[in-house]
Nucleic acid binder design. Structure first.
Length: 827
DNA sequence: TCCTTGGCCCTTTTT
DNA sequence: GGGCCAAGGA
């Protein structure tokens, strides 16, 4: 057995000793590359940080070092990341290095910082003060509404596709007028894009792309504001630079002062940190090319590569390096480690996805039992979410705790969105997405027909739905007016209340709680609604509003002196030379935010801030953190994480690389980067597997092993075959379909035989227990005298203890002891 | 108005 | 296979 604890003390130790200049405790333990990056002189620089090379550490230490050596003030730093997770991590580390509150610093996600900027300058950005942020769900429903209104053929222009189109345009920085439309379809889409924009503006809402674009335009078009921020941010640090899209890069250029063609060039230093080999978000507009552009356009002299990897054994790194070397146009980088080769990377072929999952379960059991791995240090990664189901059920049947990342997150839950919609309407009654979401929820007799009349009326008189209700007659009008009156009453009742009180009042008065109380499965939802109160309370405390802060000011205009300001930047307190930040950092927390304050971003009441937070940060779905459970997630979701043991399933042509990515070279290269990311997650053990058959979308597919296997170094691999044989040999071309597997060359690659031990003579079937006598297994149909026909979801236990989980439709899902319940198997 | 049914779609995912 | 949505019946 491999001594797995060999590594446990390694990372920090391996870091030290190479650094002669570590006279500051801050710099202690950095290796030469890291030290050079942390102590870079002023000027633009690119840091190519390989996986596991201590990137976040370098970034945060750099910031702390700048501050400690007096080269920067907290307010002169802008640090931007992509995910809330990364931003939080950075803030957390910084706050442990720095003696003061780092919350007021401009550290956050692109969208979070844009939101902050737009809140502080909402008038210059031509937005209402209480503008609301649409998340993807909201955006889609807004687009659907628009399409309905203009009778758009949703066969020809599916709303989802329109949404991608609009988001894509915004990612490129294009307004409708900027889009070159050569064909009628595109012209129509541009027209709808224009209408969508008008709708959003009318309703006072912005989508994610708009946050970015609006903020960019604000900087571009308002010379005073731009110069102010350019002078202010002397140090700009960008994390995951390879994932920036065109617009984000332009935004950075505005802040860095490079965009004015030399007329105004700031003294700022931009440090971009990234890894071109880990760019995996091209499908949402990320442009690796930004790295090369950055080097050229900013005249970057300083490039530092962090290639020392503190995470993985060399067999794993060798695989990663060899694989990624097949990509073209790389900036060039090779991970190295001082750790030994470690275990070989294991590769497994299975006859079916079920067998693959069963093999994983067996291996996981051994890792835990024999090799002392913790379950939470074992991850199963897959290319697409659909793959998780089979693995989940295998783990479930083996009673191995697991946790699936991804899926529905807290703020995306229907009941939470309903509650938030009421809250948003308190702030902004013209937010039609929210209005329509709850106008008849809980049901109050306002049907589709009534809504239609209301929408027509509103359109006819050019006002919002909220304002149009008085113009609707009859009983329909009465009901609508009742709804609006209810909102008015709520707005009244919540004046001067704390956020907690507001949410509780709204949930109670809106009838949401009542509604879910009467619903069969409403208990969970009520629990979630209560959780919303808790979330709000901890938000308020964390943001420094103070628990008792008044969340809805009695009169916003009065409390917010910024509210009626001004066109001139001077009147917004934007004296470029004013020391903005130290004040902000010292500002006493605990009062309701009351100034237009760029450092906290709040022109906002706690309620407004919380609503922004809910849109920008959907909240995680990590149900029972802390439980020692195997981690299941997509490769995308695994970025930035690491595990002792990693399984990558479904490494097959068509799945990984994904068939939709095979059209062009760029697609394959992105898939390869994705595989690179997946491989570099592993510290000690790495398993790759592929399956000859796989059920996907209700069809059996026959996949060949991925081309990526051919790009791995043979000496780092171990091709494992099952110890036990059995079952008839697998015939690839049996069965229907075949459209997937019939690639030239047949099922097995040309160099297959040399690597695989006799695959046909003893088919690679993993160890399987003999079929239990009751014959129950997940997926089969059964009949029960009382509950009728049902489907077995899972089986566990043996002999007399054996029990099955069966879904009976209207009777729900039940666990039945097989020795007692009379279940017959239906063909 | 609510519930059932059938058709359709299906890569990855953050903000 | 399964989730979502629109349509149709009670």
């Amino acid at each position: 057995m491999f001594p797995i604890d060999l590594l446990d003390s390694a990372p920090e130790d391996a870091n030290s000793g190479t650094n002669p200049a570590s006279n500051s405790p801050l710099l202690a333990g950095l290796n030469d590359e890291q030290l050079a990056a942390v102590t870079l002189p002023a000027g633009h620089a690119l840091i190519l940080a390989g996986a596991g090379s201590g990137k976040t550490r370098v970034l945060t230490t750099r910031i702390a070092w700048l501050l400690q050596t007096g080269q920067a003030t907290p307010g002169s730093i802008l640090a931007v990341t992509f995910t809330n997770k990364a931003a939080k991590e950075m803030l957390l580390r910084l706050s442990s290095m720095l003696p003061y509150n780092v919350r007021g610093m401009w550290i956050g996600t692109f969208h979070g910082l844009c939101n902050r900027m737009l809140r502080a300058h909402y008038q210059a950005a031509k937005l209402p003060q209480a503008f609301q942020i649409l998340d993807t769900q909201d955006q889609l429903s807004a687009i659907k509404r628009l399409c309905k209104q203009f009778n758009v053929d949703d066969e020809r222009f599916p709303p989802k596709q329109l949404m991608y189109f609009i988001a894509g345009c915004k990612e490129e920085g294009m307004r409708p007028a900027d889009v070159v439309a050569t064909d009628p379809d595109t012209r129509k889409k541009v027209e709808l894009y224009q209408l969508y924009e008008e709708q959003c503006q009318r309703e006072g809402v912005v989508d994610f792309g708009e946050l970015m674009l609006r903020s960019f335009e604000l900087l571009r078009d308002d010379v005073h504001l731009r110069q102010h921020y350019q002078r202010r941010f002397q140090h700009i640090l960008v994390d995951e630079f390879q994932d920036t899209n065109k617009l984000q890069y332009q935004w950075l250029k505005q802040l860095a002062g490079e965009a004015d063609g030399g007329r105004y060039v700031s003294q700022s230093s931009v440090i971009a940190v990234g890894d071109d080999d880990q760019s995996i978000y091209a499908f949402r507009g990320a442009r690796v090319g930004n790295m090369a552009d950055f080097i050229r356009e900013f005249g970057v002299k300083n490039q530092i590569k962090l290639e020392q990897n503190y995470r993985s054994y060399s067999n794993i790194l060798d695989c990663a390096n060899a694989l990624i070397s097949h990509n073209s146009n790389r900036l060039g980088k090779n991970l190295r480690t001082t750790q030994g080769p470690g275990e070989p990377v294991r590769i497994y072929e299975s006859p079916s996805d079920l067998a693959e999952a069963a093999w994983m379960v067996d291996e996981i059991k051994q890792l835990v039992k024999n090799d002392g791995f913790k379950r939470q240090e074992i991850a199963v990664l897959y290319r697409s979410n659909a793959q998780s189901r089979v693995i989940e059920s295998a783990l479930f049947n083996a009673s191995i705790p697991y946790r699936v990342y991804g899926g529905l997150r807290f703020f995306e839950r229907a009941e939470i969105k309903h509650a938030l919609a009421y809250l948003r309407l308190l702030e902004n009654p013209h937010d039609e997405t929210s209005f329509l979401r709850v106008v008849n929820f809980p049901a109050r007799g306002i049907g589709a027909r009534t809504i239609e009349v209301l929408q027509d009326t509103a359109r006819g008189s050019g006002c919002s739905l909220n304002d149009a209700v008085t113009a609707v007659g009859g009983s329909a009008g009465t009901k609508l007016q009742g709804f609006v009156a209810k909102l008015d009453v709520l707005r009244e009742q919540t004046q001067g209340k704390t956020l907690r009180e507001i949410i509780e009042t709204v949930q109670e008065q809106s009838g949401l709680i009542e509604h879910y109380r009467n619903e069969k499965e409403g208990a969970d939802r009520i629990e979630n609604l209560q959780e919303l109160v808790t979330a709000a309370e901890s938000f308020v405390t964390q943001e420094g509003f103070g628990r008792d802060a008044v969340a809805l000011p009695v009169d916003a205009q009065e409390i917010l002196p910024g509210a009626n300001l001004s066109q001139s930047p001077a009147s917004q307190g934007l004296d470029p030379n004013a020391p903005l930040l130290d004040e902000a950092l010292k500002a006493p927390a605990g009062t309701a935010a009351s100034m237009v304050n760029e450092d906290t971003g709040e022109t906002m009441s706690p309620l407004a801030a919380f609503l922004s937070h809910a849109s920008l940060e959907a909240g995680d779905n990590q149900a029972q953190a802390g439980q020692d459970a195997v981690q299941l997630m997509t490769v995308h979701a695994s970025k930035g994480l690491e595990f002792d043991a990693v399984f990558i399933g479904g490494v097959e042509e068509g799945l990984f690389p994904h068939e939709n990515a095979m059209m062009d070279r760029g697609g394959i290269e992105e898939e390869r980067r994705l595989a690179y990311v997946a491989i570099t997650r592993a510290r000690k053990r790495l398993y790759l597997s592929h399956s000859q058959t796989r059920m996907l979308h209700g069809q059996t597919r026959y996949n060949t092993k991925s081309r990526f296997f051919d790009e791995l170094p043979e000496e780092a691999l171990k091709w494992i075959t099952p110890k036990q044989s059995g079952f008839g040999s697998f015939t690839p071309n049996s069965g229907a379909g075949g459209s997937y597997g019939s690639r030239a060359g047949g099922q097995f690659g040309s160099n297959w035989g040399s690597k695989q031990t006799d695959v046909f003579a003893s088919p690679p079937v993993p160890k399987q227990k003999a079929e239990p006598s009751h014959g129950m297994k997940a997926g089969i149909a059964v009949f029960h005298n009382k509950f009728g026909e049902g489907k077995v979801l899972a089986v566990e236990g043996q002999g007399d203890d054996a029990r099955a989980q069966v879904s009976f439709g209207r009777h729900g899902t039940k666990w039945l002891a097989l020795s007692i319940a009379k279940l017959t198997i239906v063909d």
